[in-house]
Design a protein around this nucleic acid. Structure first.
Lengths: 149, 149
DNA sequence: TAATATTATATGTTATAACATTGAATGTTA
DNA sequence: TAACATTCAATGTTATAACATATAATATTA
C-alpha cells in the first residue's frame, strides 16, 4: 500500500525523505511478521539470527565477536542473546583453547532441528506472499544493496 | 554493499528469503543513522515520529489513537512516548472535551522549532547520501509500497 | 434506564536494546 | 621482561518495546 496512505501523510519533501520513512516502516512491518512466525517457537528475531549464523558456520564454532559482526542489529547484546540460547539448549559455549579471551559458540543438533521446523513455516508464508514477482524482488534487493553503498 | 558480503553469508535459499533479511538489515541500518542525527537533540526515532505526525495535524490536535495508527512502529507505547514529549515541553496534552476518554495532543511552538533544526541537519546528510539516483529512490519506494500490498 | 459491552488511554511487568564499564587474556614496546 | 595498551566477553544500568491488565467514559441493548 502506498506509504502516504498507510501513514496518512499527504506528501514528503523529497524522494529521499520518503525512502527513509519507507525503509523504517517496511523494516518494522517485516520484523513484525517475522516475529509472528518465530513466537510459537519461543525465539526472538535476534535469537533466530544467531542460530542462522551458527548454522552457516556449522560444524565450526563462531566467537561472540563474529556473531556481532554478522548480526542484523549490531547493537543488540550478542553475549546475552547467546546466554538465552544456551539456556534453551540450542547452542553450546566454551572457552576457546587457542585464545582464552574468546569463546567458541556452536549450534547443537536441537538448534539445527528447530531451524528446519521454522524454515518450513517460512516457506508456507512465502507462497502466499506474492505481491512482488521474483524479478521485482531481485530489483528491490539490488537497490537496497546499492543504497548501503 | 551486497548483503551477502555485508553479513558474510554465502547465499540465500531464495530471492524472497534474501529480501526479508535485506529489509530487516537495511531498516536497522537506516534506523541507526537516523538515531545518530536525533541523539544530539535528545529524541528517539519514535519521539521524532510523533512530533512529525503532530506537525502534520497542526494546528489541529491528534488523539493518542491517531498517533498509534500512524506510527511507524505500531507496538511502541504512544501514551508513554507522549509523556516524555510533554515532560520535554514539546507537546501539550489535555482531555478532549467532546469525548472525555480521549486526549487532545498538540505540538508546541518549541516542538515545531525543534523539527526545523532537525530537518536542516537531515538535509545536510541527504546531500552526501547519493548512492542512489532520484529515479532509483522512486523505484525503491514503489517496490516497497507494492510489497506491503 | 439499568446492565452490559466497547472504546480510549494509562499503567504494571518483563525482556531486551543501547550504552558504559569491568576484568581477564593477549599483544606490544621500552 | 615489566609496563602499558588492546582485545574479548561479560555485566551493570537505563530506557523502551512488547504484552497484559486496569480504569474511566461512552455506546448499546434488554
Amino acid at each position: 500500500m502506498k506509504l502516504e496512505k498507510e501513514i496518512m501523510q499527504e506528501r514528503f519533501k523529497s524522494e529521499h525523505q520518503k525512502m527513509v520513512v519507507n525503509l523504517l516502516f517496511t523494516g518494522s512491518w517485516i520484523g513484525f511478521q517475522q516475529l509472528q512466525i518465530l513466537k510459537p517457537f519461543g525465539l526472538t528475531i535476534q535469537q533466530y539470527n544467531i542460530l542462522r549464523i551458527l548454522k552457516g558456520q556449522y560444524p565450526n564454532p563462531a566467537t561472540v565477536n563474529l556473531l556481532i559482526e554478522r548480526m542484523l542489529d549490531k547493537t543488540s547484546n550478542a553475549s546475552r542473546i547467546a546466554d538465552r540460547l544456551v539456556h534453551k539448549k540450542f547452542i553450546t559455549r566454551k572457552t576457546c583453547p587457542e585464545d582464552r579471551r574468546s569463546v567458541d559458540v556452536v549450534i547443537r543438533k536441537e538448534g539445527l532441528e528447530l531451524l528446519e521446523k521454522i524454515e518450513a513455516k517460512e516457506k508456507e508464508l512465502e507462497n502466499k506472499f506474492n505481491s512482488l514477482t521474483n524479478s521485482e524482488m531481485k530489483s528491490l534487493n539490488n537497490l537496497l544493496d546499492k543504497l548501503r553503498g
